[in-house]
């Protein structure tokens, strides 16, 4: 009797777990199979007949290729560098300065930042970028994303910077380091895992961002992949599943590569203090 109950509980648990896992896995499996399927539809099935022709068609679309391998990389990469650099410096300054109300400032910025890249601020942002003469430039897109993501990035970085004991920096100073030397030799290496988190997070956010480039860019030659994917829709506005999935698969690869590279090179971790 007890055994039966045990088996039943276990079975129920595994069944539930399997259902949940499938819920998450099925779309991914579909994305993996459909691009290689000459007659792909919304069903998940092994590619039949198997083909690479979908990718051939995607690569024939110069506009989409340029969007993915140039514009998206420039925009996401540019924002990534800018946000990571600025967030690190700002978090360091905020953490170490005696300014009153600096916590309130960071919280406030995080709160408002969700508005910046949201729909509500699009009209003023458009006007701002327009008067800066940056409409239809990659720089305009990079700046808007940077502004929107920076507060949260600073917030993440603050956690990392705050956890460096002041005595580390002070002992570097007493050892004879300059202020910059102390930052470069001590603070920067210790917060580097944090910078990696922020970098990947920023990249992913810009990579997947649709609305901002859609509004701020005009010429097809500047569009990122998130917009260019619509070139694989029919005139009537329905997606051509073979091509959109092939393009989507390519679209995920740079993010995956970045994540794997960072994880291999630096790891998403944090150095422990001295009392480990």
């Amino acid at each position: 009797m007890r055994l039966l109950r045990l088996v039943l509980t276990r079975a129920t648990f595994y069944a539930a777990a399997a259902i949940f896992a499938a819920l998450f896995a099925i779309p991914l499996v579909w994305l993996l199979f459909a691009p290689f399927d000459a007659r792909a539809n919304l069903a998940v099935r092994l590619p039949h007949p198997f083909t690479l022709a979908n990718f051939g068609k995607v690569f024939a679309n110069a506009f989409a290729v340029r969007a993915l391998f140039q514009n998206s990389i420039i925009q996401a990469g540019g924002a990534m560098l800018l946000v990571t650099l600025l967030a690190t410096l700002a978090a360091y300054a905020l953490s170490r300065s005696p300014i009153r109300g600096k916590d309130l400032l960071s919280y406030g910025l995080v709160l408002f930042s969700s508005i910046v890249t949201g729909t509500a601020a699009m009209v003023p942002l458009f006007l701002l970028i327009y008067s800066l003469g940056l409409i239809d430039t990659q720089l305009g897109v990079i700046l808007v994303f940077t502004g929107g993501l920076l507060p949260a990035a600073i917030f993440i970085m603050r956690d990392f910077v705050d956890s460096i004991p002041r005595s580390y920096e002070e002992s570097a100073l007493v050892a004879g380091a300059s202020a910059w030397g102390m930052f470069k030799d001590i603070a920067l290496p210790i917060v580097r895992p944090g910078m990696m988190v922020v970098a990947v997070w920023t990249f992913v956010n810009v990579w997947g961002g649709f609305f901002v480039p859609f509004i701020l860019l005009r010429s097809p030659s500047n569009m990122p992949a998130s917009v260019a994917i619509y070139s694989f829709y029919t005139e009537g506005g329905t997606p051509i599943i073979t091509l959109t999935t092939a393009y989507s698969l390519l679209y995920t690869l740079p993010v995956l590569a970045l994540y794997l590279f960072v994880n291999w090179r630096y790891g998403f971790r944090f150095f422990g203090g001295i009392k480990s």
Partner: peptide, 14 residues
């Protein structure tokens, strides 16, 4: 030109 030993030693963990 001083040398200092901190209470928590402040060794650089990295």
């Amino acid at each position: 030109d001083v040398g200092m030993v901190f209470q928590d030693y402040a060794l650089f963990p990295h």
